[in-house]
């Protein structure tokens, strides 16, 4: 464990908590893409199947349980409890265009052709594009509530911090995982235009408005 990875995990934790607070406090999931949340739930389920077979640390297990529970809980809140506030009309990104290519790629490009490893690889590839429906929805509505933009900033920062973790681990531990690194870079790059808008607008107290 290193400071970059811990900061990344905490940023990820913060993002999920911010989202839950937004939905619970406003009792609405307006502006949130349910499709992205479904993809995140799939990411965690396929990645954390080793929850019971492979103990790494109490921290690792606790975070996996929280990420699994909160992502499934968020899908429940969006599609059942606060279903009436879910914005179907703007959440239209075709997620099959994300699921199929990542599934095929995980069968072709992986570290080991075993069930667990292919599911882990699929989860890594899927996570790198899972935010696209959300970013697409923000571009369609042309704006986002400030709490939603804080959620996106924390979520985008988490994998950016992981890139620093991978640099650290390469130089100090001689460890690197090219699949996680490439996917992590793609994932972080997808947030770049949002990061620009967030830093130039939201941090100045303005609302996140995309140029129409």
């Amino acid at each position: 464990m290193n400071i970059f990875r811990l900061a990344g995990d905490l940023s990820h934790l913060a993002a999920i908590i911010i989202l839950l607070i937004k939905i619970w406090k406003t009792r609405s999931c307006a502006g949130i893409s349910g499709r992205s949340q479904v993809l995140f739930a799939i990411v965690f389920i396929t990645r954390y199947l080793d929850l019971f077979t492979n103990f790494i640390s109490a921290y690792n297990t606790a975070m996996k349980v929280f990420f699994l529970g909160s992502s499934i809980g968020t899908v429940y809140l969006m599609y059942l409890k606060f279903k009436a506030t879910y914005d179907h009309n703007h959440d239209t990104f075709r997620i099959e265009f994300l699921l199929l290519p990542t599934a095929l790629l995980s069968l072709v490009l992986n570290h080991e052709f075993s069930v667990m490893e292919i599911l882990w690889t699929f989860s890594i590839y899927l996570e790198s594009v899972a935010i696209l429906p959300q970013l697409f929805m923000v571009s369609k509505t042309g704006e986002a509530e400030s709490i939603t933009s804080h959620y996106l900033f924390a979520l985008g920062s988490y994998r950016g911090l992981y890139i620093l973790n991978w640099i650290y681990r390469y130089y100090f531990e001689g460890f690197y995982d090219i699949i996680a690194i490439v996917a992590g870079c793609v994932q972080t790059i997808l947030y770049c235009d949002f990061f620009y808008l967030y830093i130039t607008k939201v941090l100045k107290g303005k609302k996140l408005q995309l140029p129409a």
């Binding site: 080793d50 690792n60 570290h111 882990w120």
Partner: peptide, 10 residues
Amino acid sequence: NIFGDSHDEL
């Protein structure tokens, strides 16, 4: 472990 080598990152 029994399910192939482990990934220690979240």
